[in-house]
């Protein structure tokens, strides 16, 4: 596991988060939630600090991080791509669209491209079923996406 160095500023921010929950072990999930919004993900180093601050074992913190799919130890790409696999999108071919993203980016769901540009995840319903199948890149929503349209979406960000 590659080691990263946390900046002093972010480290202090993280410790403040722990403090705002009175450094209580029972608040682990809330602390992790906030930590992930600070760092974008939960690297080992962040889990170490949280464990120490909350007086919990690192193994326990890691156990919670790996239990909930919301938490991730992989940094999201510069442009996180989410493919909706809700019922409406699914029946209108979202899986084929996902397959095309995987093929073009050469990564699996939950992974990030080597250049850090794109990451791939799935979600369930963004409330735009009339546009199914739906893909989000960052905050931008793309509707009625077909596998043929994947190339066009990616090229918007590839320059």
């Amino acid at each position: 596991m590659a080691k990263i160095k946390l900046s002093d500023k972010k480290l202090q921010e993280l410790k403040d988060v722990c403090k705002s929950f009175n450094n209580e072990k029972g608040e682990l999930i809330n602390v992790l939630h906030k930590a992930q919004s600070i760092f974008g993900y939960l690297p080992a180093e962040v889990q170490e600090v949280i464990a120490k601050e909350l007086n919990a074992s690192v193994a326990h913190v890691y156990g919670v991080v790996t239990f909930y799919s919301f938490f991730t130890m992989i940094p999201k790409g510069q442009h996180p791509i989410s493919i909706c696999l809700g019922t409406a999108c699914y029946v209108r071919g979202a899986e084929k669209v996902l397959e095309e993203f995987r093929r073009q980016l050469k990564i699996q769901v939950g992974e990030t491209t080597a250049d850090g540009k794109f990451s791939l995840s799935c979600l369930r319903c963004v409330g735009a079923c009339g546009l199914a199948p739906v893909v989000m890149v960052g905050e931008k929503v793309y509707g009625r996406v077909s596998p043929d349209g994947v190339q066009d979406i990616l090229s918007e960000y590839n320059n």
């Binding site: 919990a56 074992s57 690192v58 193994a59 326990h60 913190v61 890691y62 156990g63 790996t66 239990f67």
Partner: peptide, 17 residues
């Protein structure tokens, strides 16, 4: 604190951090 249950469902194991 060396061991904890990690991952979930079929992938769940008891493991160190």
């Amino acid at each position: 604190g060396a061991l904890s249950a990690v991952n979930r469902g079929f992938m769940a194991v008891v493991a160190p951090a």
